[in-house]
Design a protein around this nucleic acid. Structure first.
Ligand SMILES: [Zn+2]
Length: 349
DNA sequence: AGCCTTTGACCAGCG
DNA sequence: TCGCTGGTCAAAGGC
């Protein structure tokens, strides 16, 4: 498809992608709340930013900035210290260059300390950070390692706390059902090889195709949500070295995230990462969605509502993190072992 | 047994 | 019409 080619190529040819899964919460965040209506395919990308320019602003200023600026973006700070810049854009619009560089006046703000870094660990953004896996292992093994990497990254990163967020206003009001992220990172604390599993977003995915694209410079994997009658698909684009360069979601889930004990039956996507039930926040989110349906998102009030939903989502992420850690224990052991082996290999060389 | 990934084939859109 | 590219199907095999 034409709309994704430009973004992936220019965004980060050799850089991993992080995914922002279309969870209902996120759907409510970045859509008009209409829910399931599948609009025209839209390309939205996110990019890591190498630069560490950070304007630390409280959440209150975040609100002010959102109301004042026509567009804003969401740079997350990844666990390995790299900065992940998440951008959203209205549907239908093709983009030929990273948004980070095209929105000079965007309001940058810091993620409240309540989120980072532990909360960020399980954020959709961070889900995508983990996929670079390492060692050319099987999907199943990689799946397990995805979460392990997250935990390890957390353990290795105590100093990195700066996180910026500045979602595009147009993105927040976008009703499109497909979005993508591309990213880059320094890779210092990351395994050098990507994993086939693109992201742990809490849903179960079944791969149904893979195609070499762009003259075999990239390969694209196609996934479907395994939930019954769920139309959501995602495409994961990887460079030749296996690093994820782009992830595209299409459609909206017509179901909640599977419960931890229902996620897959053992060996597939989304199993490694348990999800806490999105209780507590769900009601508020739902109410906000209803409000949003009444209040046009283009208005300041609409923007505020979106930001409240964003804050709400971050709260969910924080809650989820506590549950995930337990599940990750085994993977942590495995990853530590693999890392030791990697260090031995390096010494041998 | 069930669900997954892999992979070649097939199809549609486009220039 | 032809060739290219992207998206999907489905058989085969693995876990
Ligand atoms: Zn689904």
């Amino acid at each position: 498809m034409a709309e994704q080619g430009t973004s992936s190529k220019l965004s980060a040819p050799t850089r991993p992608t992080i995914a922002l899964p279309p969870t209902p919460a996120m759907d409510s965040l970045f859509s008009d709340g209409s829910g399931l209506s599948p609009g025209p395919m839209t390309l939205v990308s996110a990019f890591f930013s190498n630069q560490d320019s950070t304007e630390n602003r409280p959440f209150s200023q975040l609100l002010a900035g959102a109301m004042a600026s026509p567009g804003y973006r969401l740079p997350y700070s990844s666990m390995d210290g790299s900065l992940m810049d998440v951008c959203f854009k209205d549907g239908g619009e093709k983009r030929s260059e990273p948004l980070n560089f095209s929105v000079p006046n965007s309001a940058l703000f810091t993620v409240p300390p309540r989120l980072s870094p532990s909360g960020l660990l399980n954020s959709p953004a961070f889900y995508c950070l983990s996929p670079q896996s390492p060692f050319g292992i099987s999907h199943q093994q990689a799946l397990a390692q995805v979460t392990a990497q997250a935990a390890i990254a957390q353990s290795l990163n105590h100093e990195e706390t700066s996180s910026q967020m500045a979602p595009s206003a147009s993105g927040l009001q976008s009703s499109t059902m497909e979005y993508a992220e591309a990213s880059q990172f320094d890779g210092k604390n990351q395994p050098s090889v990507a994993v086939d599993k693109p992201a742990e977003d809490g849903y179960n995915w079944r791969k149904y195709g893979q195609k070499p694209i762009k003259g075999c410079e990239y390969s694209r994997s196609y996934y479907k949500c395994t939930h019954l009658k769920c139309p959501v698909k995602k495409k994961v684009e990887r460079s030749t070295d296996g690093l994820i360069t782009e992830i595209l979601y299409k459609g909206a889930h017509n179901h909640e995230k599977p419960q931890p004990n229902k996620q897959g039956t053992g060996s597939s996507d989304g199993n490694a990462n348990s999800q806490a039930p999105e209780l507590g926040c769900q009601g508020l989110t739902g109410n906000l969605n209803k409000l949003n349906a009444v209040v046009p998102v283009c208005s300041n009030l609409g923007k505020i509502m979106n930001l409240l939903k964003l804050q709400n989502y971050l709260d969910q992420v924080r809650m989820r993190n506590t549950v995930t850690k337990r599940v990750e224990t085994k993977e942590i052991i495995m990853m530590n072992r693999i890392r030791k082996e990697g260090m031995l290999l390096r010494k041998l060389r």
